[in-house]
Write a protein that binds this DNA or RNA. Structure first.
Length: 685
DNA sequence: GTAGGGTTAG
């Protein structure tokens, strides 16, 4: 640790609490609502004495970024197992020793661009570039067209043509042609322009080859080169490569500027490495960096996505809001993309008040709106349950010139009507879409089928399903999960058969599994094996919903043993991470991501475990918690209420917590005497 | 798109 303290990228100066001589210089923003403002972090810091401390040569002793970040990523950021850490531990303070100013992590100067000079041949060259663009994509055709070049190009003319080519294949051919002509030395800018074009074609391998060629030929890689490489790797989902090149840049002694820096922040954000992003962000701010709107978007988006809002992880909408406020105070006007990121966060967090206030500010200040922002507002309405507001906005879009509703807009409206059980309005939209020239896709069908299922309009559901099949829509796992949830809802065997017939077309293996679990004679080992196969073949985001629905189906058919088996298997295969949380003081059953039937099953299972623990006289914590969430979603399915009913059925001594919303609590004392009474009813009778 | 960074759905 000590050795790494002097390196530019040591971002974790957390010291022991006993080291009280060191003043707290700044703390990490709290991960709660109304988080500490970021300006507090930066304004209280003096600029380091050397803000531009750029080493001249690669420093082999410098640990790589990933090495430095390793302790964090392996201790607090590994998935599933450590999710609770974020929930239960308070944010750590970051301690800074002011007598040892840290070295910069980024250059405050942006890369300077070369100025364009007037080119009298511009028309002629543009025409020629157009010819190159129009010719066939083959190498032969391109080289033939190249032969008609008016004259051997100068450096400036070659750059102009290189910049005017539309397809990466041609840019690449032209770049290689210039090289063979040996007219002038190949400078960085030629590589940069070519790489940008290759990035459009997502040709990361070619970009990397060019970068290595630059290194071999001792052509300087600058910030533009690195940011292009990094963002191309990112777009090609090669996050490992993005980080690798970022580290290589530091090792050569080149400081990233804010563009490269925000690009790498986005890489870490996309990897879900929130703590690393915050550390890098704070290090940047501490050395005098004032993040711009794009960085705010990157961070805001990350805070919004840090939580899945299904109840497993904790989002950080408060941080996003603080950042946004800070950005406005600093005098920046948010653009469409920043607003989109923020509106999405408020929607997912179900922060209705903040969402509506922001929407109001957008209108008052006439902040820029675009198509995506309109659609994001509609989705926010769906998340929060703002039916009327969405309808108004949707109408507004219809009357607009440039923002007519598209498939995103219609899907959002179908989602709203589906969740709000406005089945007739949903069907009206379904009829209206072809008239407006908008094709309904699998997501729209899923919303509509869900809506019809909840309304028990099974014949309409079958009709809509048949339309989707007729249109050749690819029926995916989420649509199957939706059909499966309708199977669980159906009250008559006729209805069940109708929906099962649909599901049979979409996913026959799933239907076979439903039949298997419904047969009480099926052996558990067979269930286990088949469950594994079904889940393995299911898209990750549909796995838990499948298991929830299967459990609900069993409970509705009084197959309680089977329901318990399925919950066990779901837990075994990792579909319910963080369901049981045990600390020294309390046991917590977190059922927020479970369906009602699955939550009831989990409660019964929990009580069974308690009974065994009491029987064995093992140690128990003082407090027991069951977390259902508050169901603040306007369209929520009433998990908390159903859970409360189930607790009453057992006369279990849990009461709804007044201090902690969305929790049921019981003390050890009450619970133990209740369990003992259940086990020995004759003694207490 | 005129050498580099950030936006939408079930």
């Amino acid at each position: 640790m000590a050795a790494s303290l002097s390196t530019p990228l040591d971002v974790h100066h957390t010291v022991q609490k006993s080291d009280k001589r060191r003043p707290v210089f700044f703390t990490k923003p709290q991960r709660t609502h109304r988080a500490v403002k970021f300006s507090v972090c930066c304004s209280s810091l003096k600029s380091p004495s050397k803000s531009q401390n750029v080493p001249d040569s690669p420093n082999p002793k410098t640990p790589s970024l990933s090495e430095q970040l390793k302790p964090l990523s392996t201790t607090t950021l590994s998935p599933s197992k450590n999710d609770q850490i974020h929930l239960l531990s308070k944010p750590k303070s970051t301690w800074v020793n002011p007598t040892k100013p840290k070295r910069s992590v980024l250059s405050l100067q942006r890369h300077k661009r070369s100025a364009y000079s007037y080119n009298p041949q511009i028309r002629e060259l543009k025409l020629f570039a157009q010819k190159l663009n129009d010719c066939d994509n083959s190498e032969e055709a391109f080289l033939a067209a190249l032969n008609e070049i008016p004259q051997q190009p100068t450096r400036e003319n070659a750059l102009l043509i290189l910049n005017s080519l539309k397809f990466w294949q041609k840019t690449y051919l032209f770049f290689n042609w210039i090289k063979t002509q040996n007219l002038f030395p190949m400078e960085t800018i030629f590589y940069n322009v070519t790489m940008k074009s290759l990035r459009f074609g997502r040709q990361f391998q070619l970009i990397e080859e060019l970068a290595n060629e630059m290194v071999s030929n001792e052509i300087k890689l600058d910030n533009i080169t690195y940011s292009t490489i990094i963002t191309c790797a990112k777009r090609c989902n090669r996050f490992d490569k993005a980080i690798e090149w970022f580290e290589r840049m530091y090792k050569t002694g080149l400081m990233p500027d804010e563009v490269t820096y925000s690009a790498i922040l986005d890489v870490y954000a996309k990897l879900g490495k929130v703590e690393e992003v915050l550390s890098l962000y704070e290090r940047g701010v501490a050395t005098g960096w004032k993040p711009d709107a794009i960085t705010f978007s990157v961070l805001g988006k990350m805070f919004g996505e840090a939580g899945d809002y299904d109840g497993i992880r904790l989002g950080k909408p408060g941080l996003a809001r603080s950042l946004f406020d800070e950005m406005i105070e600093s005098g920046l006007t948010p653009d469409e993309k920043t607003l989109t990121a923020l509106i999405k966060i408020y929607g997912k967090a179900r922060w209705a008040k903040d969402a509506l206030e922001l929407w109001e500010r957008m209108r008052e200040n006439r902040w820029p709106m675009d198509f995506i922002l309109y659609n994001t507002l509609l989705n926010m309405c769906a998340d929060i349950g703002l039916v009327e507001e969405a309808e108004k906005l949707f109408e507004h879009m219809k009357q607009s010139e440039n923002c007519k509703p598209d498939s995103y807009s219609y899907t959002a409206m179908l989602n709203i009507y589906g969740s709000g059980r406005k089945v007739d309005k949903a069907m009206d939209l379904f009829e209206e879409m072809p008239e407006q020239g908008v094709e309904i896709n699998v997501m729209g069908f899923t919303c509509l089928i869900q809506c019809l299922g909840k309304a028990r309009r099974i014949d309409d559901l079958v009709r809509v399903f048949d339309v989707s099949v007729g249109r050749g829509v690819k029926l995916d796992d989420r649509l199957c999960g939706c059909l499966l949830s309708v199977v669980a809802l159906c009250e008559t065997s006729e209805d069940v058969d109708k929906v099962i017939a649909c599901l049979q077309q979409a996913n026959p293996k799933l239907v076979a599994f439903v039949k298997l679990i419904e047969d009480e004679k099926t052996d558990f080992q067979i269930i286990k094996e088949e469950f594994r196969t079904v889940i393995r073949d299911t898209a990750v985001d549909a796995r838990r919903p499948f298991c929830n629905c299967l459990i609900d189906i069993c409970r509705n058919r009084n197959l309680h043993v089977r329901a318990h088996e399925l919950l066990y298997l779901g837990t075994l295969y990792g579909l319910y991470p963080g369901l049981h949380n045990k600390t020294g003081n309390e046991w917590n059953l977190d059922v927020r991501s479970l369906s009602i039937g699955a939550a009831q099953t989990a409660l019964e299972e929990w009580i069974g475990t308690l009974e065994k623990t009491v029987q064995r006289k093992e140690e128990l914590p003082e407090l027991f918690l069951a977390q259902t969430g508050t169901g603040t979603h306007k369209f929520s399915q009433g998990l908390a209420a159903a859970f409360a009913t189930h607790l009453e059925k057992f006369a279990a001594p849990f009461r709804q917590s007044e201090e902690r919303a969305g929790y049921f609590v019981a003390t050890k004392e009450d619970l133990v005497s209740w369990v003992q009474a259940r086990m020995h009813p004759s003694v207490t009778a």
